[in-house]
Design a protein around this nucleic acid. Structure first.
Lengths: 202, 202
DNA sequence: GTCTATATCATGATAGAC
DNA sequence: GTCTATCATGATATAGAC
């Protein structure tokens, strides 16, 4: 057989596709089975319930979004390099998977509090504390303006993710078609890096 | 009666509440009726179908988001004032209605293209062209850096909306609880204005 | 206008043959 | 492991009494 992918992987792939497009409530087990080219009954053989299947898919998507950032924050790279890396890898990933941010965020907002509590660990706090210290050092050395590291990171991530997420809204505000807007998005890597650098200039 | 609100308004209010919280697919006509304190049958008397009710609610929410921006862009205020106004009125509105952005954006992304086409008008293009000209004039006069007006507006709106929208994600990255994050959000008006001003400095 | 009762249908999940 | 057939539930929507 050309396709040696195991059934379970095929199911996860198809489920990811359908859940991203329709959300948990909009997705049908029937459609997932069809997309995977298998029978509905088989879905329940591999994943007992719709919830279980969703959980598996969502976890993967969430890690994809968040682990990249943490990995970059963890390194010993300079602040400048960290910013460049976050913009490059994140914007690249999002442009390749435009449905990812909306999926993660809209599902997350359905039960935010429970999720936050389950996912904040000491490790997160520690990694981020390191980044805060880095920003503080840079400011004291006079290489950048004094700034709250959390606001800074929030600004950067906002400028990366929102344009893809809010694309329909922005297009209506601009009065712009898909093609023209696509060009704007391609320019953003360069633009964001410059914009942030300018804002930080002491 | 203390409550002289007409039934139809009461329905719209309740529907708005439930749709925002659960989305179109997650919302139940039953829950909307209960919230409004009326019977299910009566919902269909006022709004033939669930789709029709949703359409009415969504239109209101969308206008609330988008018309404010257009109104500000339209005025004869200076660029500086326009930026301040967008940040102030928008962030204020969003902090008062934290569920609004997620509702509008996640529903919009389910059928973005159809929606965009239906909502782009010559008026939009005209208003925005005026803003682009303003930004260009300021740059030529040497009062700000040269910048693409669309990227600029995208940056501003991103920084306003995303932190509320992506709040759960950011809290996990920061390792921060609701209270601490809430304080960060309150500081953002001031922070964003300063950040943008710094980035634009020639 | 407002309610109760009901029709109709689609979905997630299970049972059981192969 | 994979399929078919079926169940049980719960949703939207309608009909009709008051």
């Amino acid at each position: 057989m050309a396709k040696s992918i195991k059934t379970e992987e095929k199911i996860l792939e198809s489920a990811s596709e359908v859940f991203r497009e329709k959300g948990f409530n909009g997705a049908r087990m029937r459609e997932i089975a069809d997309t995977a080219g298998i029978n509905k009954g088989l879905l329940h053989y591999y994943f007992k319930t719709k919830d279980a299947l969703f959980e598996a898919v969502f976890k993967m998507a969430f890690r994809q979004v968040i682990s990249r950032i943490h990995r970059i924050l963890e390194t010993d790279a300079s602040l400048d390099d960290k910013i460049d890396q976050i913009v490059d890898t994140h914007l690249g990933m999002i442009l390749k998977n435009p449905s990812l941010p909306n999926f993660v965020i809209s599902e997350l907002n359905k039960d935010a509090d429970r999720f936050i509590q389950r996912n904040i660990s000491q490790k997160e706090k520690f990694i981020f504390a390191k980044f805060m210290a880095l920003v503080e050092r840079e400011a004291e050395a006079g290489r950048i303006k004094k700034i709250d590291a959390r606001q800074l990171l929030m600004n950067i991530i906002s400028m990366i993710i929102f344009p893809v997420l809010g694309r329909p809204v922005m297009q209506v505000i601009f009065g712009t078609d898909n093609e023209e807007f696509g060009k704007l998005l391609l320019d953003r890597k360069q633009h964001i890096k410059q914009f942030v650098k300018d804002a930080l200039k002491p």
